[in-house]
Amino acid sequence: MIDLQVGFLSLILLLNILTLGSSRLKILIKNVAVAGTLVSILPLLFSYPKIAAASVAFAAVMMLVKGFIIPGLLYFSIRKVSDPIEQVPIIGYHISVIIGIVFILLALLISSKLSLHHLPSSPTTLTRDLLFATAISTIFVGLFLLMTRWKAITQVLGYLIMENGIYLLGTIVVGHMPYILEVAVLLDLLVAVMIMGIVLLNINETFNDIDTSLLVARSGSGSRSGMESESGYSKDQQND
């Protein structure tokens, strides 16, 4: 009755859209942590009758890294930040959620045009399409977050979401990736996040804020001009 695969995939989709809609940094980190956990367990579900011990171990390691270590690092770097709430992004929250829905529909469209026959043990076309759609929409959502948010932390989270999506895509295309490759991807992810964390700390110390629009101002190409809309409202009044 309850299709676990479908349930997990829908939860991942839900989490993505919730990430698009929330403005508090701690909740964003929690969302990404849960999504990372789900993504790492997902390949186990898809290869259900034959689960190798190695893949269980690998899933556990991945869950540890994606669900605990990386979010923990990000929590640590947030503690020093002055303002734990995101500013109003370039594209507002409501529109972001609707665009997220549109992304999911687009991804479904793409996946129904492609024909993926060689996915291991996905019983229905629905699950196959949904998996592909989840992967592609996660990548879109990650890119979208990278593009439209001001704070550096959210951009890091967008990168993490994109990594989730790429990992899912990898699960589809090959039945299971060779272990060396998976370990390499994981290491790459870890190192990238560490570097981003260090850069973040430095930005915070220099500016006392991790707002990337300040970087834009420094380079002289106009600061926060995108926030002035036709309405003549000042930015402070739009804090959510």
């Binding site: 479908v6 829908s10 959620v97 479904l108 949904l130």
Partner: peptide, 24 residues
């Protein structure tokens, strides 16, 4: 200001449910 987001979240749930049952 948060109520529209609340309702939008239910919209997302319905959209997901629709997607899941569209072609079955």
């Amino acid at each position: 200001k948060r109520v529209p987001k609340f309702v939008l979240s239910s919209l997302v749930l319905v959209v997901l449910a629709t997607i899941l049952t569209w072609r079955g």
